[in-house]
Deep mutational scan, measured.
Amino acid sequence: MRSPRTRGRSGRPLSLLLALLCALRAKVCGASGQFELEILSMQNVNGELQNGNCCGGARNPGDRKCTRDECDTYFKVCLKEYQSRVTAGGPCSFGSGSTPVIGGNTFNLKASRGNDRNRIVLPFSFAWPRSYTLLVEAWDSSNDTVQPDSIIEKASHSGMINPSRQWQTLKQNTGVAHFEYQIRVTCDDYYYGFGCNKFCRPRDDFFGHYACDQNGNKTCMEGWMGPECNRAICRQGCSPKHGSCKLPGDCRCQYGWQGLYCDKCIPHPGCVHGICNEPWQCLCETNWGGQLCDKDLNYCGTHQPCLNGGTCSNTGPDKYQCSCPEGYSGPNCEIA
């Protein structure tokens, strides 16, 4: 077999650049994923090309098998939009790539799955459409700058595939050579959905506090709520009108309100015997008056200043008058 000629994957630097851009600016990249293909086995019993010639040398006159050299087999892949009637021409609109030389006439790579040499990765940054057309071609490398490479066999497949970690196996069982391969579509990290176009990256910072479920939905951490999980859940009972919080379990009062639940107004400074319904009010309790509710309107009842059976009459805020019984006098009937 001729010395292998290595063929790198098509578009790999571009895919790395796209992945970097997506990581830095995830909101700009609407989708991100990759179409993967792995060659599993190849069977070319006679070492022939599609045109019937030998990959190298002439045929044995007896059994008609190619004798001089085995094929240097590598694969090309073209991925494009779905076609009900597949045409070989036209651009590979979803991507293209190739393997290096991975074997001779016949080989089996099932035991070495995950080997990069027999895998082609086609990254995409558009919403995966699920339906596709795939062209797979086996080629013989001439290892010659003058002699062109020659095609051994080709296969085409049109179908639908959803993103999954599971592989789907396909076979080419007609023509001079048979080969088996597997395909799958996977979303990149933080991308979800059938189109790999739903973005969700767990975070716990100013912009949100959430994890992501298997469908890419945000699940808020304990103590947080809202579409972006950036609204803290305040202390139970915290007034929704007069209290708020920036951290879970907190209850910060608005100006003019106080209390554990921010449901108590702050009265006017200096208010003595008054209450409030709104901040800075001083609504006097019964029998109290004045701007600060510090004037006693029922001095008689509060202090009972009249002595010796005198009768007390309220005459104004903090004022009274005693009517003394016979034989007593003085402001409080204290003089006998």
Rank of each mutant, 00 (worst) to 15 (best):
G223A: 12
A58G: 09
P227R: 09
V146F: 07
P331A: 12
G56C: 13
E137V: 04
C220S: 01
G309E: 09
L18H: 01
M160L: 13
K218I: 15
G259C: 02
F124V: 05
F126I: 04
V136A: 02
G30E: 13
D72G: 13
D294E: 05
N217Y: 14
G47A: 01
G90R: 11
P4R: 15
R235Q: 09
C276W: 00
K65Q: 15
L247F: 05
C234W: 14
T67S: 14
Q172E: 11
L37F: 07
Y299S: 09
E38G: 05
C306R: 01
I151F: 12
Q166R: 13
T302S: 13
N215K: 08
I183V: 10
A211V: 10
E48G: 06
E285Q: 02
I120L: 12
N44T: 06
N44K: 07
N173D: 08
E334G: 09
C284Y: 01
A336P: 08
T133R: 03
P305R: 06
P325H: 06
K80R: 15
T106N: 04
Y191F: 11
L135R: 05
L37M: 08
F179V: 11
C282R: 01
P148A: 08
L17Q: 04
A26G: 02
Y132N: 00
Y261C: 10
I266V: 07
D294H: 03
Y74N: 00
T133M: 09
N287T: 08
Y192F: 10
L16R: 00
W224G: 12
K154E: 09
A155S: 11
V176D: 07
F107I: 06
C265F: 00
G97W: 10
A26S: 14
Y328D: 12
E326D: 11
E153D: 12
I151S: 09
G97V: 07
A336G: 11
C71W: 15
W128C: 11
G159S: 02
G327W: 14
P100T: 04
C262F: 00
G309R: 10
Q83R: 13
I152L: 15
C220W: 00
R64S: 06
Q168E: 12
F207V: 13
S142R: 12
G226R: 10
P240L: 01
K27E: 02
C220G: 05
G103R: 08
W288C: 01
M225K: 08
E70K: 08
G175A: 07
V136M: 01
G256A: 04
K110E: 11
T145P: 11
E334D: 11
K154Q: 15
R165L: 14
K171N: 08
P61T: 10
Q291R: 10
Q50E: 03
L170R: 11
N332Y: 15
A232S: 05
E326A: 07
Q34R: 08
S156P: 09
A336D: 05
V272F: 15
S244A: 13
D63E: 13
G195A: 04
L292P: 08
L17V: 05
S131C: 02
G95R: 00
T99P: 06
C22R: 02
N46H: 03
L283V: 08
T67N: 06
F126S: 13
A127P: 06
C271W: 00
N108I: 11
S164R: 08
L297R: 15
Y181S: 00
H242L: 08
Y255N: 08
D294V: 04
N60D: 15
Y261N: 03
T174M: 13
Y320F: 13
Q43H: 02
E222Q: 12
Y255F: 05
Q172K: 03
C229G: 04
P269L: 07
Q321R: 11
Y181F: 10
D69N: 12
D72H: 13
G33A: 01
C322F: 06
Q236K: 05
I335T: 04
G216A: 03
P91L: 12
M160V: 07
D189G: 05
K295I: 07
K76Q: 14
N308I: 14
C229R: 02
F94I: 09
N332D: 14
C66F: 11
V101G: 03
P163T: 04
Q147H: 10
I335N: 08
N298H: 00
N51S: 02
T169A: 09
N108Y: 11
L79V: 14
L21I: 15
T87K: 04
D213H: 04
C234R: 08
G89A: 10
P248T: 08
T106I: 08
P100S: 08
C333G: 03
I152V: 07
V101A: 13
R117C: 12
L135I: 02
Y210C: 12
L49Q: 07
W224R: 08
G89V: 10
A31D: 00
D149G: 04
I183L: 13
S112N: 06
P240H: 07
G30V: 13
F35C: 00
T315A: 09
R130K: 02
D140Y: 10
L297H: 09
Y191C: 02
Q321L: 13
P13L: 14
A88G: 15
N46K: 03
C300W: 02
Q182L: 10
N115S: 01
I161L: 14
D213V: 02
H303L: 15
G89W: 13
L297I: 03
L122V: 06
R165W: 14
G310V: 10
N230Y: 08
D149N: 07
C282F: 00
E38K: 05
S98Y: 06
Y299N: 11
G33R: 00
Y181D: 00
I120F: 09
C245W: 07
R130T: 08
T133P: 07
R201C: 10
G193V: 00
I266T: 05
